[in-house]
Design a protein around this nucleic acid. Structure first.
Lengths: 209, 209, 209, 209
DNA sequence: CATGAATGAGCGTTCATTCAT
DNA sequence: CATGAATGAACGCTCATTCAT
């Protein structure tokens, strides 16, 4: 006599999660405007009113997903701050570790990352904040005498974000490279540049930078 | 002083161009799907049928704008190929010039660039092709003994595209830096990296990369 | 006494059928292109989206109606084939029965018949097939020695279809004659023709007309 | 200094006729509502305003074409009345001649016939009038002792119109049979019917078919 | 005689959202 | 907890028709 009219073991929390999962996939695939509630509910085998039982609106569920990513990113930043405090002689390794963590975050949360970092209107803000933090880290390294400051640190920070972004889209999410690989390549590139220093045991042209 | 506020007998070519201009702005601002024909024609002070007098469909005008950007990019690439043939001792300058040209293109054609490079489905393709061309250039520099190949050239090329992309969005189009400035910073960064080489007249660690 | 004037929570199947009914009437009256969804839904006291709740498109509902008629016609043909197998001395009666069945079909399904037989692009095909079947029947009668073949049987078949068509439009659907009446008249006409055989003391078959 | 701005020897009467010709073709092919002014003028190499220089509206040119057919049909009827006055012993031939004339009219004026006889709202009326005249002719033949009246003459008349209509569409306009052939077959069919008179040693009128 | 440019009115269709049950 | 049924608002597009030149 219980379960009357219920569809196979309906469970509010379950439905909600299912809807979020499917919505994440759809938003990641097609963006906000091209994702249709009707598609989401169809795939979740529930009806449209059920959707509105759990989410106030299309905007609401989208924002919830964006916030999820924001949270993960925030956590990462918190942790990285800690680790950045540890003074270490192995500069390259330390930097690579930081980047690896970022790429891993993107790899493990592809869908909400797509939404939060590429599909939302807040993504600009998030990237800006990320750049800011990187800039601060860079400044520390300069102070510590590891990095020169011949290039504008904000520009460098923005460049790093741009590279992370593009490598994630074209390599990481295509399965071409692992987080570790990408992190290592990036680190080498940003640390030492492309120039081939003639090992004539003499002075090189980095001086005039 | 004639023709003021005239609706009938106006200049067709002008109407067409006006519509394109407004459409470009709208597409750049809101993307394809969120741009409404009704908005475009309202801003152009014409009615909807007038739009269809000049464009077959919403898709058609969008593609026309995308193609405009593709054309400009193609022209740029053509020219850069020529100049890249000229062997020059001033490597840094040469690279900076190439980047300056790209940033200038983006600066002078902001709207269609937004559409073609950021808003269209072809944008991925265009970036891929751009990366490919950059990779080829890098390979030449390696052969010529200017660059090392300690990092995967394709990864570098993709990184460069990512940096151009992000700097354009966050610096160039915000009016913070000029094409020349951005090009120079980028060149320095990618050529020499961030590492501060202790000028103790000794060997540097690029060797073990 | 409940449900009076209710818009929400109404019976979906009923709405669907109501829409089909009205659509049938409209298509029959004005043809496909001049029938407007707006008219249909207005008459059904629902809004346009409701229409699309039940039918994929204007084409879809039209085709559904055409198919309904095709089905009925097919069924009729199936049955008539069976009965045509029964050899009978009463040729005239048998033929009249066949025609009666056809006219009854048209009478009982006026609207979808109008659509399928007069308003659709398939109508030509259906008439052609109908003629073909009639031609086959005629050929059998010729073989059986009932009919001569002084006239081309295909022409006769087409003529019969033409007569059915026109009598349906001008007599049956105007309520002037019953299926039986029309069938009998047609049979007499096609069997014996109009000519008056001079009663020169010999037998002539016009007598039993 | 004349002809300034004129398109190649523009001549009002010529343009008008050209438009009518093309309109006739289009109306015949696609019916009234599916024929577009824009298509007509494009094919005539004139602009839309030019169309309205010669015709008040889409309805107007359509009606003009319908009237053309009505005129031709009227003329035919006039003539046939005259010829029907001539008493002749060769009944079959006389009737065939009448039908031939009708089929010829349809053959020589296919396009306006399609419009007037099949596509217009007046077509019913025209067919009704045609049937009426045929009925009168039949009545005369009955009075003259040529035809029996075992079948309702109005029904017969309508049947004849139906046959003409359908044979025109499926045989004449498909180029399968000539007016003469169709007329002869129709005549034989309607005069003598399909029945095979058993040749019980006596005369039967099927012989001379 | 003819046109380039424009429009009012309307059509088929879609989507996020909401009742009543 | 869930649904069947419905809708307001909007969108892309088309067509016959009309000015001003």
């Amino acid at each position: 006599m219980n379960n009357r009219g219920r569809k196979k073991g309906a469970d509010g929390e379950k439905s909600r999660e299912l809807l979020m999962e499917i919505a994440a996939k759809q938003f990641a695939l097609h963006g906000f405007h091209e994702t249709k509630i009707s598609t989401i509910v169809k795939e979740a085998h529930v009806t449209q009113p059920t959707f509105y039982l759990y989410f106030k609106s299309k905007e609401a569920i989208f924002q919830e997903l964006v916030d999820m990513f924001k949270g993960k990113l925030h956590t990462l930043v918190e942790q990285s701050r800690l680790s950045s405090g540890i003074e270490s002689a192995e500069l390259q390794k330390r930097i690579a570790n930081g980047l690896t963590a970022i790429f891993r975050l993107f790899q493990d949360n592809e869908q909400i990352a797509r939404i939060g970092f590429f599909g939302s209107e807040e993504s600009f803000d998030m990237k800006k904040k990320m750049a800011k933090q990187i800039e601060e880290n860079l400044a520390t390294e300069v102070e510590n005498g590891y990095f020169h400051d011949n290039v504008d640190l904000n520009t460098v920070a923005i460049a790093i974000v741009g590279v992370i972004e593009h490598l994630t889209l074209t390599k990481l999410w295509k399965g071409i490279n692992s987080p570790e690989e990408l992190a290592e390549e990036m680190t080498k590139l940003f640390l030492y540049g492309l120039i081939l220093v003639p090992s004539t045991g003499t002075i090189q042209n980095t001086s005039e930078l």
